[in-house]
C-alpha cells in the first residue's frame, strides 16, 4: 500500500499543490489568511486567559502558539482527510489511483500551513528573544515532529477510510476533536493537571508533542520521555489500526461514494 504511494508521488504532489493553490486563488489577501486564524486566536485567548483568568504563564502568547499551531495541524489535516473521499468523489469514481494518496495529500497540504503558521511563532520569538532557549536539546525537535506526523497520518488514514463507509465518522470526529481541544494542554501546562486526570489524558499523543515543543523551545530542556513514549505507543497502535482499516475499505471507495 505504501509502495504504491512512492510510485505515484507525482499524483500526490499534484493533489497537494491543487489543494494548496485552490485555497488562495481569487483571494485579495492570499496567504495572509493562513495567519489570520491563529492571529485572532492568540489575541482572544491572551485576553481571556491573561487578563481575565490571570494564569500568569510567562510569555503566554508564545506558550499558547506552541500548543495551538501543532494542534491546528492535527485537527485541520484530520478534518480534511475525513472529507477527502467525498471532496474527490469524481476522481475516485473515474480514475484508478492508489486511494492512500488522499489522506496523505490532506496531511501534506496542512503541513505546509503548519510551516506558514510557524512564522508567527518565529515573529514572537524575535520580539521576545528572552523567551527562546538555545540548547543542544533543539536536536530533539525532529523527533517530536516525526512523532506528531506519525500520529496525524495514522488518524487521517482511519477517518478517511471510515468516512467513506460511514458518513457519521465526520460528526463523531467533530465531537472527539472538541474533547481533545480542551484535553490537550493548549491553554495550560500539563504539569498543573491533577495526577489522576493526567494518567488518563497522557494517552493523547498531542500532549507529549505540545509539551515536548514547549520544553525544548521555552525551557531549553529535553522533552518528557515518558509522555513521548506513551505518545509513540498510541501512535503506533493507531498506525496499525489505520493500515488495517484502510486496506479493508480501499477497494470499496468507488462503491460508496
Amino acid at each position: 500500500m505504501f509502495a504504491e504511494l512512492i510510485k505515484k508521488r507525482e499524483v500526490l504532489d499534484v493533489l497537494v499543490q491543487k489543494d494548496f493553490k485552490a485555497r488562495y486563488k481569487d483571494k485579495a489577501l492570499g496567504r495572509f489568511w493562513s495567519l489570520a486564524d491563529p492571529l485572532v486566536m492568540v489575541i482572544v485567548f491572551t485576553i481571556v486567559f491573561e487578563y481575565i483568568f490571570k494564569t500568569g504563564q510567562p510569555y503566554f502568547p508564545i506558550f499558547l502558539l506552541l500548543g495551538l499551531t501543532p494542534y491546528r495541524f492535527f485537527t485541520n489535516s484530520v478534518n480534511a482527510a475525513a472529507g477527502s473521499g467525498l471532496d474527490n468523489a469524481q476522481l475516485v469514481k473515474k480514475v484508478a489511483f492508489p486511494r492512500i494518496i488522499l489522506p496523505f495529500a490532506s496531511v501534506l497540504s496542512h503541513m505546509r500551513h503548519f510551516f506558514i503558521e510557524l512564522l508567527l511563532v518565529l515573529g514572537l520569538f524575535l520580539y521576545f528573544p528572552a523567551a527562546f532557549h538555545l540548547s543542544i536539546n533543539l536536536l530533539w525537535l525532529p523527533l517530536v515532529f516525526a512523532l506528531q506526523c506519525l500520529f496525524i497520518q495514522s488518524v487521517a488514514m482511519i477517518v478517511a477510510a471510515l468516512n467513506v463507509r460511514y458518513r457519521d465518522t465526520q460528526y463523531m470526529l467533530n465531537s472527539v476533536l472538541l474533547i481533545l481541544y480542551w484535553m490537550t494542554p493548549l491553554f495550560y501546562s500539563f504539569s498543573i493537571v491533577p495526577r489522576k486526570l493526567a494518567l488518563f489524558l497522557q494517552w493523547n499523543p498531542m500532549v507529549g508533542v505540545v509539551e515536548g515543543y514547549r520544553a525544548i523551545l521555552l525551557k531549553g530542556a529535553p522533552p518528557s520521555f515518558q509522555l513521548l513514549g506513551v505518545a509513540a505507543i498510541t501512535s503506533t497502535l493507531l498506525l496499525f489500526i489505520g493500515t488495517y482499516v484502510f486496506k479493508k475499505y480501499e477497494k470499496l471507495f468507488a462503491d460508496y461514494l
Binding site: V14, A22, L91, V95
Partner: peptide, 29 residues
Amino acid sequence: RVSALLELGAGFHPHFTGRENILINGIVM
C-alpha cells in the same frame, strides 16, 4: 495502460486555468 474516455475532466478544478488543469488531469491519468 488503460485510458478511459469516461473520465473526461476528472480532477478538473474550476478556479485553475485550462493549462493548469491539463497538467493536473494528465498526471492523475
